[in-house]
Computed example of a mutant assay.
Amino acid sequence: MSSNKSILERRTRQIKTMAKDLGFDFCGISKAEFLEEEAPRLESWLNQQMHGKMAYMANHFDKRLDPTKLVDGAKSVISLIYNYYPQRDFNESSGYKIAKYAFGKDYHYVIKDLLKVFFQRIQDDIGEVNGRVFVDSAPVLERVWAKKGGLGWIGKNGLLLNQKMGSFFFLAEIILDLELACDGPVADHCGTCTKCMDACPTDAIPMPYVVDGSRCISYFTIELKEEIPAAFRGSYKDWIFGCDICQDVCPWNRFSRPHREEKFKPTEELQQMKPHDWLEITNDIFNRLFKGSAVKRTKYEGLKRNIAFLNQKKSDDHKI
């Protein structure tokens, strides 16, 4: 028994060392098992239509809760944190704001490449292992797994919070059929703070730990493909792609430190954008400015819609 335990611990140390060598800030391990506590929460959230028009959120319900349906014989979930907090926030000078995670290259590709290298190293160093890598691209409840793996707690704004670096980071997972030594969860440190709830201009956090995705600025500026409801005009605070408000006000983000990933750095052209540049942006400029960027998800027409929505409010205020 002790021999088996020492093998698990040695494997786990190997994997955590690999994670650090590849630039991941934290690595946590949890047992791949059915998420029994999450099932009623997810069902309730969906039944209340808090996913809005994001129909894909209702798909693959069982897979979201059971990792063995994603990887046969899954035994462990490796959860990883990768920092994206920028050296400088150029949003204030640009007149229009995009979420910090989208300043540089699309994280899906950057982190997916790292995960592939990671998984190959596991096979090279430990042996033949069956598994899959994930970075916000499959029905995986990444924040729940990160919480179970001891990487932090899920805050009142629905994001994973880490005591040492806040929440400006990406989460990624490797689900595999390799048994490892598991980490335990950490305590919730939100306390009585409600800054994220109080600051949300669209009331997308109606109660602690519940986020109404259908009211979130990120949802309206990225996921929603139709017209933005007029009732939310004036609530946007100049956001045209995503939103960082609930993170910017979170006290734990005083511990955020600039990332070291060159691919996440914004181009000089993007940093120099001014209000008139956004208003006059063409399809060609959009494609050049956001080549390989997550902003491409909203497409040129979507970004123009978002800018126009903000300007309609400004135009109305001017008339008054």
Rank of each mutant, 00 (worst) to 15 (best):
E43A: 15
C216W: 02
K237Y: 03
A172S: 11
E280R: 15
R215D: 01
Y82G: 06
E223M: 14
E38F: 14
L141K: 13
G127K: 14
Y85W: 14
F90A: 12
G242P: 06
P86N: 08
V140R: 13
I240Q: 02
N47R: 14
I307P: 03
Y107A: 11
L178G: 00
L35T: 05
K314I: 00
L224F: 09
G158H: 07
R305H: 09
A187M: 09
H189V: 01
N306G: 08
V117W: 13
K319W: 06
Q87Y: 11
I240Y: 00
D317H: 13
F286I: 08
K97S: 04
G95I: 04
N4W: 13
H276W: 05
A58C: 04
V211A: 06
S235I: 04
C27D: 00
E226I: 01
S30L: 08
N306S: 09
S256A: 13
E142D: 10
C200E: 01
D136F: 06
E269D: 07
E269N: 12
T17G: 13
K319A: 08
K314T: 01
F169S: 07
F118W: 14
Y109F: 15
R132D: 04
V140P: 07
R254P: 03
I245R: 14
E92A: 15
L46Y: 09
Q163A: 12
Y101M: 05
A146R: 11
S6G: 12
Q247S: 03
S293W: 03
A294C: 11
M165N: 11
Y82E: 06
D277W: 00
L171K: 09
W45R: 12
C200Q: 09
F220H: 05
V295N: 08
D72S: 15
Y56C: 09
L279P: 09
P67G: 10
C182T: 03
G150W: 01
P258S: 05
V249D: 00
S79F: 04
R132L: 12
Q272P: 02
T221C: 07
M57C: 10
G95H: 05
Y209S: 01
L171F: 09
R254S: 10
S315L: 15
D188H: 10
V133F: 12
D238V: 00
S218F: 05
V129F: 04
I7V: 09
K313S: 06
D317E: 13
Q14A: 11
